[in-house]
């Protein structure tokens, strides 16, 4: 699996980026989610793979017994996944709000919104 996962990760990265580069809002969200997934897999793979052997100290022992997976990237990932979810939700709400406010689904239409928000001088 050590040989296959890098390719899967790269593929996910490429797909995520491809979706982000599109102008469409919905694809942007999909792209962000995929990109996050790929990043998590990247970190996980870098921390080396161990089949089975979860990082839990077995009953009756006081120290972990090999083989067990590296707990450090796991601790990183656990929070990363939850935070990633928070970001996703934020992105979804943001996109929804923009879609409602400007009635467009095209990112390129947003490059001069700053100017339109300023109220005209009386």
């Amino acid at each position: 699996m050590d040989i296959v996962l890098p390719f899967i990760t790269g593929l996910l990265f490429a797909t995520g980026l491809y979706l982000i580069l599109h102008r469409h809002f919905f694809k942007l969200i999909l792209g962000i989610i995929l990109f996050g997934l790929a990043t998590n897999l990247f970190i996980f793979t870098i921390g080396r793979l161990t089949r089975g052997g979860s990082p839990i100290i077995p009953q009756g022992s006081e120290v972990a017994i090999e083989p067990y997976a590296d707990p450090v990237p796991q601790a990183l990932l656990l929070t990363a996944i939850v935070i990633g979810f928070g970001i996703q939700a934020f992105a979804i709400v943001l996109v929804k709000r923009v879609y409602q406010a400007f009635g467009t689904n095209n990112l390129d239409d947003l490059n001069n919104t700053d100017k339109t928000i300023i109220p005209p001088k009386e």
Binding site: D2, T9, G10, L12, A14, T15, Y18, L21, I46
Partner: peptide
Amino acid sequence: SVLFGATMTYVLLLVK
């Protein structure tokens, strides 16, 4: 995208 994905794969393979 493909360039990026390929780079990341290459980096991962190297790291491992």
